[in-house]
Design a protein around this nucleic acid. Structure first.
Lengths: 330, 330
DNA sequence: TTGTAAGCGTTATCAC
DNA sequence: GTGATAACGCTTACAA
């Protein structure tokens, strides 16, 4: 053993007085005589030996590492997702190598490239690059976004969630509904929240409007819209479905400034339910995404050996949770 | 090139009609004739070649990967820290491999082991295992916790922060102060928040009390304590320093239920200021930890070539930010 | 400047 | 069941 550098299998073999191959077998659950196995294990412990996973990876082409590419982990939804992905991977003996893109399409592409170069066993990505190039050499699962026909996409049942939100509001007595959304210009699964909402309203003949903003617009237009729809102190709408919980809180704040009372004058339902997965009470009444299940599903699909019959879209069920912004007691 | 598997340098060499070593030099900025370089680059592009970093790592013993070990990334402080660490590492050409311990000392030890086995170039850990074993083979930087004499620890100036909080409250007119803390039983740098607070109060002759809970106690005792210290509708204290912003919000909620008004009747200062690093308004008046700087510092120290003159504790400066729970306008 | 060849620490294939 | 030996894809002397 060269001084200063870590011990290798060779060192262990010499220390234990066995052949190199025998040591390898011990660390790979091969069949080895019990006496030899003990000798090897003891020698390894004496030397403080650890398998060099890079050498192993070079040989086996499996690295037990998965790259996760996310816009950030500051947004609670992303951080809870990241945490659940990490745990799901760990449970299966994989390590998570995390990249933060800050919504930059070029960074997304760069990280995907890097990940491939680093021989990861797979990539899970939540990306906004409409023409993302992903080599089909390494398995890829996309979260909430369609990438290409052979890239499976995992998402919540956004359409169903939109329907559910509208249905709940109607059940809670609302007569005139509003859908509020702010987000990326890039098309994604979550756009279907609106589709589901409108489908339900149309189907039931419920009056409804929609305000659809892009991130760059900021919240200002929401305030203007709400203000313009207050007549004699009353808001024209008695039920609002917001595309995220974060937006719901923001709208609630605006309404409070406009002296419209939640949930007496108007009831609010958001989307995500992240707080629930953080062990907290929900911040608002909301459609809950099954984040732990989403994470497990991403990982399962990614690591599935048989890539032949991959579905191209997997929608997971959402649920409703009251949280103070509707008139169904928490 | 064997069909189905990725192209290697050998394939590129053959395709370009040059020797293997030449290809290697091209990808390592060695000196290669311009004509050869072009030939190699083109051949590489044609084949879609990417350097296999595992093979490279095996040879060079540098993997450009750093393990980050955190209790979770759901707590906003940790998630902002993780994000900043990730960015600091990326900036320097390193990848972040994240482990979530959920405060489990055994998991901490396990991940440290794993990280070493995976030949990372270093480990940054925020751990609660009082007798963590970390091989001195791989560089380790500890966040907020003393591990051993030769493991550098990076933390905010918690003592100074405690003093600053007390000083601010006194400047804002408080006469009788209270320090509230809940946290781990494991000793850490953040315990010094109390020390600094008390040192200031003693030095200035300010009346003060302290309530020091462990996580397992829950928030209940705080409520009892506050209730017991309300006489004729007035709280005995007019200034409270809470050990985190999360606790501050919790206390604020309790006080509101007890009909004590913040900041009129009592002023609150928290610790962390995480919201500021998320681009939000602070949730409460607070002592702000310089999270981006903390992350940069961890990474700088970890990757420092010359390990000879490592300080054992690096304290970074904190600052005060008003946020509505004190009587200095936001 | 370019090519050759010897490893890096494993795993895997064989003879034994 | 055990032990040589040849890869794996790359870097790096060293020779040409």
């Amino acid at each position: 053993m060269k001084r200063g550098s870590a011990p290798t299998m060779k060192d262990v073999a010499r220390e234990a007085g066995v052949a190199l191959g025998t040591v390898s077998k011990v660390f790979n659950n091969g069949s080895v005589g019990e006496e030899y196995r003990q000798r090897v294990l003891e020698a390894a412990k004496r030397l403080g030996y650890q398998v060099n996973s890079y050498a192993r990876g070079l040989k086996t082409n499996r690295t037990y590492a998965v790259a996760v590419v996310l816009p950030n982990i500051i947004n609670p939804f992303f951080s809870v997702l990241a945490q659940n992905l990490c745990q799901a991977l760990t449970k299966r003996g994989y390590r998570m190598f995390l990249s933060i893109t800050d919504f930059d399409p070029e960074a997304e592409q760069r990280y995907i490239h890097m990940a491939q170069q680093n021989q990861v066993d797979g990539i899970i990505g939540l990306t906004y690059n409409p023409d993302l190039q992903v080599a089909d050499k390494v398995p890829f699962v996309s979260f909430d976004r369609y990438v290409s026909p052979d890239v499976p996409c995992v998402a919540s049942d956004n359409f169903g969630g939109g329907q559910l939100a509208a249905k709940k509001l109607v059940e809670l007595g609302c007569k005139r509904l509003l859908f509020l959304r702010i987000g990326s210009t890039v098309a994604g699964e979550s756009d279907k929240r609106r589709d589901g909402f409108e489908a339900f309203c149309r189907g039931m003949g419920v009056e409804h409007d929609t305000l659809y903003l892009r991130d760059s617009d900021g919240y200002g237009p929401f305030r203007d819209f709400l203000q313009a729809h207050i007549h004699q102190g009353r808001l024209d709408y008695d039920g609002i479905f917001c595309c995220t919980d974060v937006l719901t809180l923001e709208i609630q704040k605006m309404l409070s400034e406009l002296e419209v009372h939640v949930p007496q004058d108007v009831q609010l339902i958001g989307f995500d339910g992240t707080a629930i997965h953080m062990g907290r009470e929900p911040d608002c009444s909301t459609i809950v995404q099954p984040i732990p299940l989403l994470a497990e599903t991403c990982v399962d699909i990614l690591l599935k050996e048989d890539k032949s019959d991959l579905p191209s879209l997997i929608c997971l069920p959402v649920s409703y949770a009251p949280g103070g912004t509707t008139r169904d007691g928490a």
